[in-house]
């Protein structure tokens, strides 16, 4: 059976795309799925350090595309989760080194061997974006509850649609419940209202994301972390499981209900 090819994108940089990719991948692999993560940010390689695999790179995605090595030679097996693999980006090349058609071929051959192929898309909407989305079957958009990130996410929804990726799902990253509570941060409903796409999950702003990234260990493996729990649920939802939203999201269900019966806004 062919695996699913999922691109993770955001438009704006710095919203946590790479962290989301690492954790979705690690989360899915922890569920026993065979997962390949593709770092499509050629020239600005990052997924390797977030996963703690930076010392193991020999070949990269451009080597594979140029036929200098076989697909398997470039895939690095994760230290902790046996079914997780990374296809690193090239560091000394630029985005022009790859064509959308070549990416399509690459992800198609990965999809024959893996249950999930998750692509880390570079920031921006130029060549790198077009490469990253070329071979994708579905898309996940990462945003933060903040004006510039939401605006860029909206542009991405339109661009994905033009590429035939019509139903992207949204991850709202770095939500700060205490700021939402005092009305100083867009809440989940505000963001969903503005973007009008389906919610995949909400990740609270959590120091453990930074400390675990410092160690090169995805936070999804940390059983005590709130953000880790959010990522475990996101992975489960991608995997087709119907998981309830976490408590900070339950609040939003309540306001949805209020709106439904006509007392909320």
């Amino acid at each position: 059976m062919e695996g699913r090819v999922i691109v993770v994108t955001s438009g704006k940089g710095g919203v946590g795309k790479t962290t989301v990719v690492a954790n979705i991948g690690c989360g899915l692999a922890s569920r026993g799925k065979k997962v390949a993560l593709v770092d499509a940010d050629i020239g600005l390689r990052n997924l390797d350090v977030v996963l703690g695999l930076e010392n193991r790179i020999v070949y990269d995605i451009v080597h594979v595309i140029e036929g200098k090595c076989r697909l398997r030679q470039a895939l690095i097996r994760d230290k902790r989760v046996q079914t997780l693999f990374l296809m690193p980006a090239a560091q000394s090349r630029d985005k022009e080194a790859v064509q959308p058609d070549q990416m399509k071929q690459l992800t198609a051959s990965l999809a024959r061997e893996f249950d999930y192929v998750v692509i880390d898309c570079p920031a921006g909407i130029e060549r790198g974006f077009k490469n990253a989305v070329a071979g994708a079957d579905e898309a996940v958009i990462v945003t933060m509850p903040e004006v510039s990130a939401v605006r860029d996410a909206d542009r991405i929804v339109g661009l994905l649609e033009a590429q035939g990726l019509g139903d992207p799902r949204l991850v709202i990253n770095r939500l700060r419940p205490e700021m939402v509570k005092r009305g100083d941060m867009l809440d989940i409903d505000d963001v969903l209202d503005l973007l009008a796409i389906d919610l995949l999950g909400v990740v609270p702003d959590d120091e453990s994301v930074i400390t675990s990234t410092n160690r090169g260990e995805p936070v999804v493996l940390d059983g005590a972390s709130r953000a880790g729990e959010a990522f475990r649920r996101i992975a489960a939802r991608i995997d087709g499981e119907d998981v309830p939203f976490m408590s900070l999201e339950a609040q939003s269900m309540w306001s949805k209900f209020k709106r439904f019966i006509g007392v909320g806004r």
Binding site: R151, V180, G183, L186, D187
Partner: peptide, 14 residues
Amino acid sequence: RSKSLAKERLKLAL
């Protein structure tokens, strides 16, 4: 509150 401003501004921009 600042989030209401954010939402109104975003609505127009989008």
